[in-house]
């Protein structure tokens, strides 16, 4: 077997390796088929098959769900880290209560990331929805409930930021599974 054929065989082994479960049989079909192809046509055939399986993997419903879940987990961890940094800056400026709140929020967001990683996108929605609601109420009520202070606008801005970020997270947590189901219904 020459080098080009070896590359073609390797490409098809990779195609089998990356193929989604429901496409595994098709990747094996491609691998069997290459043995019946003249050697000058083998490499283009194998590369086309590899591309087909890369595309199948990238657009597979499970892959999209996993990508959405880990995007939310990593996003939440980054957000939690920002809270820790903010808490450090607030404690340096002697704002002890906001600093404690920022640490509490950092832990809560990290827990959200943990439950999203372990339980999935439904956990994101269940945890984020009440916090988004409370944040929305806080953004509306901060002017009425709290006395005017140097931090009033800061609290309001933080509450609005929470609502926006949590809504984006919930949109991903609901939207991606919904889209995957709709797409699979459209295929069959």
């Amino acid at each position: 077997m020459n080098t080009v054929n070896q590359i073609a065989q390797a490409a098809l082994r990779l195609a089998v390796l990356i193929s989604p479960t429901e496409r595994r049989e098709w990747s094996l079909a491609m691998q069997a088929e290459i043995l019946n192809i003249s050697s000058d046509k083998a490499l283009p055939f194998a590369l086309g098959c590899l591309w087909a399986m890369v595309h199948a993997r990238a657009t597979d419903g499970n892959t999209l769900l996993i990508a959405a879940r880990w995007t939310l987990v990593l996003g939440a961890l980054a957000w939690s880290t920002l809270h820790v940094r903010l808490a450090g800056q607030l404690s340096a400026s002697s704002a002890s209560i906001p600093s404690i709140l920022a640490y509490v929020a950092a832990v809560a967001i990290a827990l959200g990331a943990y439950f999203t990683a372990v339980k999935g996108l439904r956990a994101t929605f269940i945890l984020a929805a009440p916090v988004a609601l409370l944040s929305g109420l806080a953004a509306i009520g901060v002017d009425y409930l709290l006395p005017q202070s140097p931090y009033s606008h800061f609290y309001k801005a933080i509450a609005i930021e929470y609502v926006v970020i949590l809504l984006v997270g919930m949109l991903i947590a609901i939207g991606v599974p919904h889209w995957v189901v709709q797409r699979e219904r459209a295929i069959v």
Partner: peptide
């Protein structure tokens, strides 16, 4: 057709 076009079409 190329294999990268044919096989996804057959799968569909």
């Amino acid at each position: 057709l190329r294999s990268g076009t044919l096989y996804p079409l057959l799968m569909r």
